[in-house]
Nucleic acid binder design. Structure first.
Lengths: 174, 174
DNA sequence: AGTTGATTGACAGTATACTGAAAGACTGTA
DNA sequence: TACAGTCTTTCAGTATACTGTCAATCAACT
């Protein structure tokens, strides 16, 4: 096949083929993310919950009273995106926003009773989804892949717009 | 820390902690995708091109005259999303849509001269981005990670809405 | 006190991704 | 020919993700 431009004027770099594309890290990461989300949604379809909403609830449970900006740093969300995620969770009654006592800008986030119940209920499905994502690999390969991914993500933490930051970096109240 | 519900009524399953979350495959895949896109955009910022647009152009160059539905299957795009991607590329003058000769439903896709040039121009930046994504790992680990990712993506190909399908599965003309 | 700079939340705009539906065009069969 | 089913595209709606901007608020300094 090899569609190569007819004007053969000094084509020094070899052109990318489809097989090149399939082997690119970027393509593999995109595909794996597609697949991971599909598996998550399939396992959790009884709960009307997305991966992001789940992560937000887990983080709020671990850090009740956190504000939105610090929450976004805790789970590497884009701050702008998080706003709508919080709004949806609030609409569903899973979390509550309360004004901060000292700082009027801040709205503190808490799980409602329903949110805590929903989160506890969905956790088995989430665990199942995580297992399924790696199920095709042998156990030793799963460990290897997770270790390499964790290292790669950690070493590139600052690269994306939403790097992970610890929750106590600059906490004031609580 | 460990925010655990006060009502200690038979909490059998252990609750997910933040550290659990950070180690989940789904979280790592999402983070890695964020980072990979950020690196791509940074390396290619002189070209106003997204990863998807790049992949579409590569595939059209390799399969001139392909239609949108088969293109989506070739690079695992969601068919609905691909429509707007094609529209943007057409607006930028990088590709042309022509009506199919036999089938009036089909619009065949071709690179324009400008599209071929742009694609050739951006390829070094794309290669640089791909290298950067794995630069933090040792060469041996890069190979291992790519191999495991490729296997995992391949074995789960059917899971997402947009599985990869070969271009000649059901080709009629050409 | 007043000003400056930083922080927080909200918003507009673009792009990727999926679900589901609709309309037009083709194919095979009755 | 008429009909049913299939294919191709497009659109509406929702969700994630980033860029950039804005106003309100707070903190620190003059």
């Amino acid at each position: 096949m090899q569609a190569r431009t007819k004007s053969a004027k000094t084509v020094k770099e070899p052109l990318m083929s489809m097989d090149d594309l399939y082997g690119m890290p970027g393509h593999l990461f995109r595909r794996m993310q597609q697949i991971a989300v599909a598996i998550f949604m399939e396992e959790c379809k009884a709960f009307d919950m997305t991966p992001l909403q789940y992560a937000a609830l887990v983080a709020i449970r671990a850090h009740p009273g956190i504000d939105a900006t610090r929450l976004s740093a805790l789970i590497a969300f884009d701050r702008s995106t998080l706003g709508s995620v919080i709004e949806r969770l609030e609409t569903k009654g899973l979390l509550a926003r309360k004004a901060g006592p000292d700082d009027k800008r801040i709205k503190l986030l808490y799980l409602t009773r329903a949110g805590a119940d929903e989160l506890r209920g969905v956790e088995p499905a989430v665990s199942g989804a995580q297992s399924r994502m790696l199920a095709a690999l042998k156990p030793a390969d799963r460990k290897t892949l997770l270790k390499l991914m964790a290292r790669l993500v950690d070493l590139n933490n600052e690269t994306s717009r939403a790097p992970v930051r610890p929750a106590d970096a600059g906490r004031r109240s609580t």
